[in-house]
Design a protein around this nucleic acid. Structure first.
Length: 427
RNA sequence: GGAGAGAUGGCUGAGUGGUCGAAAGCGGCCGCCUGCUAAGCGGUUGUAGGGGUGUUAAGCCCUUACCCCGGGUUCGAAUCCCGGUCUCUCCGCCA
């Protein structure tokens, strides 16, 4: 969430930021009035509590019994006033918090201003999309024919938007996961994490998924736990309510996890195949960094994600989101998209395989993640960053479609062969 | 799931109704001392909110809250009562 002091001190700047996102700048004025109310109430309550504290001490010291009783009844009356004041304060704090949690992060200064995804910017193209001397088939056709992807049975057992990977298809995904983890751990210096796939509500508030986006999440009512939509949630919350040692930063984690999203929209042509399911696997990178380094760390993060594409020999591009297409929590965001030659309506489509964001101190403030720049210095909020490295189904699509052969077989990319018992070709 | 024990500051650990934001030790920080190091000596050392005073700085002053969480009793709660969470031990179950 945003710093209430920033809103108090620079309301116009905050309004302008919200406007560039397409959010309502009037939220600022609402918040300011709630804040004023809260502070006034807090002052009143503190003052009453101070009187009670000193009054109670007097009672402790008083000798005369009659006098004590008189003082007690006085304090009793004050106690009632305090209770009433505390109730008002609690309400005022809750009101302010509720609104604050509903306000998105502000874009960083360099982010291009734009209304929606049409104004995003292509930062770079890397690699040439493969030129086929035959008509490439989409992955759902190749997968079905090879017996490595079974969408029908996935639907049978779990409903629409579920699928089953089988044989070399399942092995290929597993190889990709292991390959990505090893790449980020060994080459890029991340620490591997295996996180829970189910978390408490508080974690989702911390990362910004709740309270606003609860309808995209699966939830277990019995134990009041939620299935994670991304490993970002448990991994970011690893350091919730902690004060980290500044000397330890940056902290870089990489985690493989399944992800669960309800994706309530209707099934359609654009989601043919395994591009968008309710359950998918993802390797996610998460960083905790100091504010001064976050820009450079984001660039490195994007590069780490791209490195997976480079190593796999997949053509890709990097897109910078304009203000209007930023997520709720991101201050800057770059997507890595890889080329899938047979998806989409007319011969190929760019698939988003990674979304790399810097959240500045927005998540850190929600989740209470701070660091101490030096011994004895006041704690400050860290900057959090994350990015997929990469999302599995779409990377799988990229491999299947780009590495297909005219006979319907798939060549296993060189770096994955060691993870597949030396297999060079599927089919 | 059943029975029992427990949860206090960065750590260990005292504290069973007021003099406790909390002893003591360790660690950290500042200074002193000592050829160096180690040891020693002195001081200091939680987080957050509100108000005041500074340049919407640093600093300083006042004040509130926090001894796992939420309620309650009381003029007053780390301390008493109730509910919950988590940890440990034993039993059960289980990959």
């Amino acid at each position: 969430m945003l710093d209430i002091r920033l809103i108090r001190e620079q309301p116009d700047q905050v309004k302008a930021g919200l406007a560039s996102l397409g959010a309502d700048p009037a939220l600022v004025d609402q918040l300011l009035s709630l804040d004023e109310d809260r502070r006034r109430t807090e002052g009143e309550v503190s003052e009453m509590r101070a009187r009670r504290n000193s009054g109670s001490k007097e009672i402790g010291k008083a000798r005369d019994n009659e006098q004590r009783e008189a003082m007690k009844s006085e304090m009793r009356a004050l106690g009632d006033e305090i209770s009433a004041g505390e109730a008002r304060l609690k309400q005022a704090e809750a009101d302010q918090q509720t609104l604050l949690l509903d306000i998105p992060n502000l874009p960083l200064a360099g982010v291009p201003v734009g209304a929606d995804d049409r104004e995003n910017i292509v930062v770079r193209n890397v690699g040439e999309p493969r030129v086929f001397d035959f008509t490439p088939k989409p992955h759902w056709e190749l997968g079905a024919a090879l017996g490595i992807l079974d969408i029908e049975r996935g639907t049978k057992i779990s409903g629409s938007r579920f699928y089953v990977l089988k044989g070399a298809g399942a092995a290929l995904q597993r190889a990709l996961i292991a390959f990505m983890l090893d790449l980020h751990v060994r080459k890029h210096g991340y620490t591997e994490i295996y996180p829970p796939a189910v978390v408490k509500e508080q974690c989702l508030v911390g990362t910004g998924n709740l309270p606003k986006f609860g309808d995209n999440l699966y939830r277990d009512i019995e134990d009041d736990l939620w299935l994670i939509p991304t490993a970002e949630v448990p991994v970011t919350n690893l350091h919730r309510e902690e004060i980290l040692d500044g000397a330890q930063l940056p902290i870089k984690y990489v985690a493989y996890s399944p992800c669960f999203r309800r994706e309530q929209m209707s099934a359609g042509r654009d989601v043919r195949g395994i591009k968008r399911g309710h359950q998918f696997d993802k390797v996610e990178m998460v960083k905790f960094v100091t504010p001064e380094t976050s820009e450079a760390e984001l660039a490195a993060l994007v590069d780490n994600a791209e490195d997976v594409c480079r190593e796999l020999g997949l053509a890709h591009r990097v897109i910078q989101m304009c203000t209007g297409d930023l997520s709720f929590v991101a201050a800057v965001k770059y997507d890595v998209e890889l080329w899938a030659p047979a998806c989409g309506d007319n011969g190929g489509e760019w698939l988003e395989v990674s979304s790399c964001s810097c959240f500045t101190d927005y998540q850190a403030r929600r989740a209470g993640i701070r660091y101490r720049p030096a011994p004895g210095v006041k704690p400050e909020f860290v900057h959090t960053l994350n990015g997929s490295g990469l999302a599995l189904p779409r990377t799988l699509i990229g491999v299947i479609e780009n590495y297909q052969n005219e006979d319907g077989s798939i060549t296993v990319p060189e770096p994955l062969r060691g993870y597949m018992g030396g297999m060079e070709k599927i089919g």
